[in-house]
Amino acid sequence: MTDTPNLQRGEWRQWRQFAVLAEELHFGRAAARLHMTQPALTQAIAALEASLGVRLFDRNRRRVALSVAGQALLPEVNELLRRAQTLPALARAAAHGESGRLRVAFVSTVGYGLLPPWVRRFRERWQRVALELVEATSDQQLEGLLRGEIDAGFLLHAPGSAPAGLARLSLTSEPLVLALPEAHPLASRARLSLRAVLDEPLVLFPRRILPELHDAVLQLYRGAGRTPQVAQEAIQMQTIVNLVSAGLGLAWVLHSVRQFQRPGVVYRPLAMPAGQGVPLCETSLVWREGEANPALQRFIEAHRAQ
Rank of each mutant, 00 (worst) to 15 (best):
L250F: 15
Y221A: 10
T239I: 04
A183K: 11
L248R: 14
S245M: 12
T227R: 03
L218S: 01
A231C: 07
R189A: 13
P211K: 09
M237C: 04
P206T: 02
V197M: 15
A231D: 05
S188C: 09
D215G: 03
L186P: 04
L198N: 10
A183D: 12
A251K: 10
I209K: 12
H214Q: 00
D199N: 15
P181H: 09
G223T: 05
G223R: 14
A196W: 01
A190R: 09
Q238I: 04
P211L: 11
A190C: 01
V217E: 13
Y221V: 06
Q238S: 11
V217F: 11
R208G: 03
L198T: 09
R207T: 07
L198H: 11
S245P: 00
N242K: 14
G249C: 06
R189Y: 13
R226E: 11
L204W: 07
E233K: 10
S245L: 04
L218Q: 11
L210Q: 11
V217P: 06
A190H: 05
R226D: 01
E200S: 07
G223C: 06
P211V: 05
A183V: 06
R226Y: 06
D215N: 08
R222M: 04
A216P: 02
A187D: 10
R208W: 14
A187E: 06
L243T: 05
Y221T: 06
L213Y: 07
E233F: 14
R207L: 05
L202N: 04
L213A: 12
T239D: 12
S245H: 15
G249W: 12
G223Q: 13
A187M: 08
L250P: 05
Q232P: 00
T239G: 11
R222N: 00
F205N: 03
V217Q: 13
G225W: 00
A224Y: 00
L202C: 03
A234P: 08
Q219V: 05
L180M: 08
R195I: 00
T227N: 00
Q219D: 13
M237I: 12
Q236P: 01
V244Y: 02
L192T: 03
D215P: 00
H184C: 05
V230C: 00
P181Y: 08
L180A: 09
F205R: 08
V197K: 02
P185E: 12
H184Q: 09
H214W: 06
I235K: 04
L218T: 03
L218P: 02
E182C: 06
P181C: 05
V230I: 15
A196P: 02
V203Y: 01
V203H: 04
A216F: 07
N242P: 01
A187I: 10
A246G: 06
G247V: 03
I235S: 05
P206A: 01
L210K: 14
P201R: 09
V244R: 00
L198M: 14
D215A: 14
E200Y: 00
M237T: 14
E182D: 10
L186E: 05
Q238K: 10
Q229C: 14
A183T: 14
R189F: 10
L218F: 08
S188P: 02
R207K: 13
P201V: 07
T227E: 07
P181T: 06
Q236H: 14
T239Y: 07
H184I: 12
R208V: 10
A196N: 00
A190P: 03
L220D: 08
S188I: 13
G247M: 08
Q232D: 02
D199H: 15
D199E: 15
L210S: 12
R189I: 02
R195V: 04
V230L: 07
I209N: 12
A196L: 02
A224L: 00
